[in-house]
Structures are given as C-alpha cells and as structure tokens.
Amino acid sequence: MKRRFKDIVAFASGRLFLIFVNALALLIFCGLLLKAAPILQTVSLTDLLFSSVWHPMKHQFGLFPFIVSTLAVTLLAMLMAIPVCLFASIYLAEYASRRFREVSRLIIDILAGIPSVIYGLCGILVIVPFVAVVGEYLGVSTTGYSLLAGGLVLAVMVIPFIIAISVEVLRMIPGPFRESALALGATKWETVKYVVLKKAAKGLVAAVVLGFARAFGETMAVLMVVGNVAQAPSSIFDPAYPLPALIANNYGEVMSIPLYDAALMSAALILMTVVALFSLTAHYALSRLGDHND
C-alpha cells in the first residue's frame, strides 16, 4: 500500500512539473503579448512594423530599421556559414577517420560552448578593424562597426552549432545505404551527392533552420560589433541595429518614457514568434528523420 502511494505521489508531482514547463511557454508568450499590447493603442501595427521613424520621446515607434537589421545580419551570417558547415560536416561524417572525427567533435563542442560575449570581444579586436581596412581599400567610409562585422561574428558563432547537428544527422543514415551506391562503383563523393545528401536533406535543412533561429536571437556578440545606429542599413559596411540589441541597450531606461517598454516588448514578441516558428519547423523535420520511406 505504501509503495503504491509513493508511486502515485511521484506520478502526481511529475505531472505538476510537466504542466509547469508547458505553461511556461504559454506564460512567456502571453506575458510579452500583454505588455506589448498597449503600443497598438497609439501606433498602428503597420506603422510599428514598417515605419522607419524611431523617436521614443515623440511616441514614434517604427521598428522597421531594427527588423531589417536583424534579417540582414542573420542572412549575411547564414550565407557565409552554410557552405562552410555543409562541407565541414560532410568531411567529418563521411571522410574522416573515427579518431579525427572524435577529436574534431570535441573541438566543435568547445567552440559551440564558448560564451557569446567572448565572440563579441574577439570580434571587436579582430573583425571590426578588418572590416574597416577592407572598407578603406574599397573606398567606403566605415568605422568597421557594421552589418558585415555583425554577420561575420555571427557566422563564426553559429558554424560550430550547425556542424554539430549536421554531423549527427549524417551519421544517423545507416551505412548500408552508402554501400548500395559504393558497391556499384560510385566514388565517395558520388555516394554523398546522390545518396547521403538526399537522405539527409531534411535533417540538414533542420540544422540550418536551428542555426538561423540561434543567429536571429543572438544578442551580445552582435551588439558589440554591429554599430547600433537606428537606421536601416543600405550597405554591408553601414552600421545596423538588430532587435535584440535594441532591447538590450534600452531596457534599463524604459520606465521614464511612456509606451517605450511596450515597444521593446513587441520587439521581444517578434523575436520569440519568429524563433518559435523556426524551432517548430526544425522539430518536425528532425522528428521524421527516422523513417527512410522516401
């Protein structure tokens, strides 16, 4: 009887925590929504999303420059990261010896675990001056604190993250699938091209999507090198001001200006919604990875 009782107590408390975790997501979403809602009383949704005028003191809250900055810096980073990730993970999963793969994985895990402020710090030291020099060489005036610097730092940050997932995905494809091409006399690369990549396509897309989500919400590393000027950038050498940086830089002083906090909350809400959609996509892509019926 006592054993049964314990079991039931354990069951009930497990349920409780389970419900808490599920409620947490809802709570965060609703909390942000509730806090962001007042902004729509003075600013229309289209103005909020597509107006470029950002004058908190005059109650003008156009998030457009920040949204464009976020998208631009993320896309730029992914553009640079994707080829590197694809080739590096194919090498690790398909060509490397087990020893080399294991060591590389360790290194990549370490890279993925380095805190983002450290990436930002190294970015200030290396990438910002580098961009300035490149800009000068090309005859563009730039301080180096720019969209390009943000994209580069972000690319370096997400590369290990994407590689770690991609290698997992590639290793999950059973060896015999490769054998069926190799046994026909296909080269290793042909096997990768016609069999492995096709089998892994969904999982690799998921890895990239997760990387995109990670980059989209990354705050500190980008904030430190991107320049933070509230204006939609027109070239990659212009400074930019992504949404996470906007929130991080201004949250301390919001209380003094009415509706400012609501504007920042709507920025957070946009971030969360976009990232949640991406996570959702990746979740379904990865959860169907097991079946090979295609």
Partner: peptide, 20 residues
Amino acid sequence: VTALRKKVGFLPQRPYPLPM
C-alpha cells in the same frame, strides 16, 4: 576501388534502395 567494384558487383543481404 571504383573500377574494382564495377568489375565485382555486390548484392547485399538486406536490400537498401538508393533514395531515388
């Protein structure tokens, strides 16, 4: 190796079709 495998074909114990 590819030439060897073309000359000596292999039929596996469990068939794994190519993903096409």
